[in-house]
Design a protein around this nucleic acid. Sequence first.
DNA 1: AACTCCCGCCATCAT
DNA 2: ATGATGGCGGGAGTT
Length: 938
Amino acid sequence: MSSALSESQHLRQKAQTTISNHKGNVFAEPQALAKSPRKASNQNTVTEIQSNMGPLTTPTKGTGGTGEPWTPTSNLKMLISAASPEIRNREKELCVDEGGNAVDSSQDCELGEEVEKQISRKEKSLGLLCHKFLARYPDYPNLALNNDISLDDVATELNVERRRIYDIMNVLESLHMVSRLAKNRYTWHGRANLPQTLAKLRQVGEEHRYGQQMQLIRQRSLEKEFDSDSEEKENEDEAEGGKHGQKEMFFVELPGVEFKAASVNSRKDKSLRVMSQKFVMLFLVSTPRLVSLDVAARILIGEDQVGDQDKSKFKTKVRRLYDIANVLRSLKLIEKVHVTEERGRKPAFEWTGPEDFPDVKDTAGTTTITKRSLESRASVENCAKNLFSSPGSKRSFTRHPSLIKLAKSIQDDRRKINSAPTSPVKVDSSSSEFFPTKMAQLAAICKIQLDQQSKRVIDRTPEPCVTDAMTKAMSVNTELEQQKPAKTPEAPQPAVLTPTEPPASTIHLTPQAPFTTQPMSFHPSQCSPLIPVLLPQHQGSGSYTIYMHPSSFKPHSLARPQPTSLAVRSMTFEEKTGRSPSDVPGHSPAANQLLTGSPLGLKRMCSERSSEGSPSKAKRIDPNTRDTSPKLCEILQARLKARRRGLLSNRPSSRALHLEPEFVNTPGSSAAAVNQTLEQSLETFLEKEEKVATWDGEAGLTPVRAIPLTPQPLHTETLIPTCYLIPISQQSLFSYKDSHSTESSKASVSTYNLYHTPTAGSGSPPVQDYTPTSIHRPTSASPFPTQGHRFNSPSPAILNFTLQNLGLIPGPGSGPANSPGIAQTPEPPCSIHSPLPPHLGLQQRGGMVFIKPMSPVPVQNQMIGQGGQPLTLVSLQQMTTPKGTALPQHSFFHTPVSLSPLASVVPTTPTGPGHTLPAGAKPVYIPQRKLEVTTQDT
DNA sequence: AACTCCCGCCATCAT
DNA sequence: ATGATGGCGGGAGTT
């Protein structure tokens, strides 16, 4: 802080001189000032400023500066920003003077109108304004002092309209640098909370798989470029996928900071705040810490671009992003850069903030108690908030009268809860407690493992983690590539980026990525096109595990009142959906618990809620029937069609993805047992699902159903589109369908939490994981996801869903099982259902690639075999070159665990897969499964 | 022409 | 009802 301050001060001084020069040259200053002040409405404030300024101002003008290159704008900006306080003072003085003499100002203006304008505009920029604002407060406030901020005072002092201050405050609030105390009053926290906030945001960003989403979007854009014509439909499809998690976003709060705000104002979900957080998350989850404006805008809009309507939305979003970016720039967290792609240069922002922050990840496990506590707390809070806010987050919801009431009640509950001792503790411990025996043990084991892993990895940033996860060799390659882009932030990057990005993204996403990367290095173009997968979810195994548990826990339910529970539920689901399992244990568990407690009730609630709150949205359907909303079905169908086309054409899928993996669980025997159980349950489940799917006819259905289960309508919508969502649905499905349903659902939930957490926390597991399946696996699995994002547990249903989405699999109706089965193979659970023999091989049909299990190892074995086996993932993709060819492919696979892990690890993988894709890609690896995407012809 | 993004209308929310 | 907030998009300034 101090350093920062000092620096800023220095800058200011420097700036002053320079600026003054500029101004002098231009003469603009006075004028500009005059203008701004007038407009601004700052009347009063000036006085204060004046006093301060006096000295500064005078001197300034005199200088003659020069020297600097001042490009009018850029330099000025910089200078100004640096000197903000002083400048401000000057301005104020000027203003004051002017106030007295309106005429003068006008005269001045005349002299240098042009100049003035420029200056004025810049001076009025949000970034500069923010600088000025920041100059007023220390980076690290003395707690002893009063750090209250009066909006009115600030507005007056800075000579700006209040509206502008709100923009700044909203962004600062999103970073927890300030918190709202009451109307017109904020408390300054400075950067004290920044590390925690960033860590938290990164965590949440990972949970939401923003990295994956970004990759998808990037891919798409690449594809589009290449294929310009080819497809647009995809956009739609893609959009779906991309979004799924987004909508769910809610304002992320930190423990200490939140309450106040919460208590004070209920609306935290406002867009600027949330957008700001999402935007920051994007940086935190992307490997090259570079985010292009359009990608960010797309992700922030929940949907990808679509039609014209979207265009306007897009424009609006972009405007907002600029607003946010200007504030973040003044905070020195990001810097504007341009990425040059084939198409041209695109505006982008590079993260220049801290790379390492405390891991907040609690998710995992948390090595440090402190962190843990914090995290847990945070998670709890989040849960509460989510619950609370999530509904609200969507405005529609919030605003809905009925919802509002609900929200209020929830809030109250939340507060109570928060206040209650339980909340903090809950997370880890609670989970364990809840789960009875086995679960607890498993959880504990997992945690331990995770912790261990996490410890190893702890400090690493995500990137490293990723690499670790993959084989080292792979990692090396990857790193190199990644680094390249990173190194050359500006010019170089662009070039690199294009090629690189895709790979990078890939990497991020899944563990597989690393492999992919390698190939990429070879064939960048190819790689890029490919999309990674995503999916994470997994916990399939976990879920299974869950199965075991039955029950038990519902702890939270007790705490929360029903209403709350409902809210929570919905929230939870969303989150889960959105996030992957990795989510914070804390809240998710809570949600889970709630859910578990009375699934039925929840359902009802949800349904009720949905109907009330947003009938339109609510879609919920009955599980039995296809509930999916027609829309969903339509969407799915459309998607499928599109995909199929794509496949034919080659595009296979950009989206393909998925995979899974997971399993993690692992630990030993107990795990195995669990797995078995899970398998059984899964089988049952799968069977059911298959049936359903068949009936439904379209692939989409399955997923849909799942959705319905979920409480919230929102999810449904969201989920459906996206492949990713899957996880959730499964859970819900399980619960419904299986007799166990209740238990299973509970279990699953709990499991998730446990696993994920750890996983997330761990960061990346080393290669080891991959290799064999052994025990570690789980961890390993987790790592990948972690990096990439989280996963959720994929369940067979998910797999199916995914496959369908990909187009690999035909609709539900169609051939059911087989192909899917294969694909799923990867998942452990799948084994069960995998009725289909894996044939294996990848077939590419139309561009699609199929993955098959390379390894002979029977799926079952894989899955089952180890308990954990990991899994796998998969692959995906697409690709292609642009246009036509298709080629896609990619895919991967991996050997079975049992066999030799090495193989998987080894680059050889490519070979194996080779068949899959000759080209370069070769990525692959991993676990076992391949996806086959066959289209289905069948 | 595209990129930036300031400005302020006006819907909401809080009181 | 009134003031506080903040979404939003027109359109001007920049590049």
